[in-house]
Design a protein around this nucleic acid. Structure first.
Lengths: 193, 193
DNA sequence: GTCTATATACGGATAGAC
DNA sequence: GTCTATCCGTATATAGAC
């Protein structure tokens, strides 16, 4: 019914999403997606003209997934500070995957930024980061920290990216948990004035 | 003379190093390396049995590059605190490249960790991080902070990774510079006791 | 040691039957 | 809408002349 109806189309996007995450975009072939879904290779071209179109659909999917996560943070509490603490803990809610495959946005962005051909897709990818940063910025603004809100939002994203990256490379969930707590304390500190 | 003599071999490694950095490992073909060096494709197999062997040589090369950088930090000052501040500023010394291609260790590690086939190479990659973390840990120990040295060293690496990652994705050199200063202040703070 | 020609496999993409 | 067969380019890797 939706604008992008068709159950098969969705199955392709879901499988591609998982595979792009676990193997990377360039290392995922149509055969891989075919194997996962049972849908034959040639059939993909009925739904998507190119591989890059599948990528775009996957990115859209991830955007809405993160939008949902942010909405849930908002619904759990109206306190901006508490929301930021919930946000900080998000990597922990998918800990095993994060340890194994890294950040679903960060690793893909990093991979795509290397291709000059996919600059369009790259622009789309930063949109996911934009959504996160804008949301964090908004919370800081609600706390009356307008002047530093943007910088703090970017700092928060950067700190989480770094933590996830190190935890991923070393397969170190202990570091992920400990450092997440550190970031929470940092948030409590800068919002305590 | 060296264990890995041959000027041609070195030219291949150097070209591969640059290409793996700017395009990524999987997106770099033998033809690309051939175009850059003028050495015909088939000739590579005289020096390396597989593409993965080239990768190993590139990783070795990067390890020694970073070892040199650390040595220079040590030679410039004997004060561990100053050394850590110099270390923190390292991304700025290759700012344009970092903005364009990200961290030479981080992006490659992230890419290779997605392939399960290259787990050997992956292990080698963490060695580069080990070198950096061990060196930072040593400096913190020299400052009498043995109990927290390892954690602080990992925190420092994670913070730099995050900053570089965000600066890379957004092509934001201003953020890189500003945040590097923030990290320096953080170091001054934790070492001021 | 250096280079050309080629083997072999797999990638994305197309054509067209059903 | 679904599926098979296939084109075409490019990838790594090999064989073998020079």
């Amino acid at each position: 019914m939706g604008t992008k109806g068709s159950a098969n189309r969705q199955r392709i996007v879901d499988a591609a999403d998982r595979l792009f995450y676990s193997r990377g975009y360039n290392q995922t072939s149509f055969s891989d997606i075919s194997d996962e879904t049972g849908i034959p290779r040639g059939n993909f071209y009925y739904y998507f003209k190119t591989k890059e179109e599948i990528l775009e659909a996957v990115v859209e999917s991830r955007v809405s997934i993160f939008r949902n996560m942010l909405e849930q943070c908002e619904q759990k509490t109206s306190e901006p500070r508490e929301r930021l603490l919930l946000f900080t803990a998000l990597p922990l809610s998918n800990e095993e995957q994060v340890i194994q495959y890294g950040c679903p946005i960060g690793t893909l962005s990093s991979e795509l930024a290397k291709d000059q051909e996919h600059e369009l897709s790259r622009a789309k990818l930063t949109v996911v980061f934009d959504v996160l940063i804008d949301w964090c910025e908004k919370q800081f603004c609600l706390l009356g920290m307008e002047s530093r809100a943007k910088k703090y939002a970017m700092d928060l994203i950067a700190r989480l990216q770094g933590i996830v990256q190190v935890a991923y490379i070393y397969n170190d969930s202990q570091f992920l948990e400990q450092s997440t707590d550190d970031v929470k304390n940092w948030i409590r500190q800068i919002t305590s004035n």
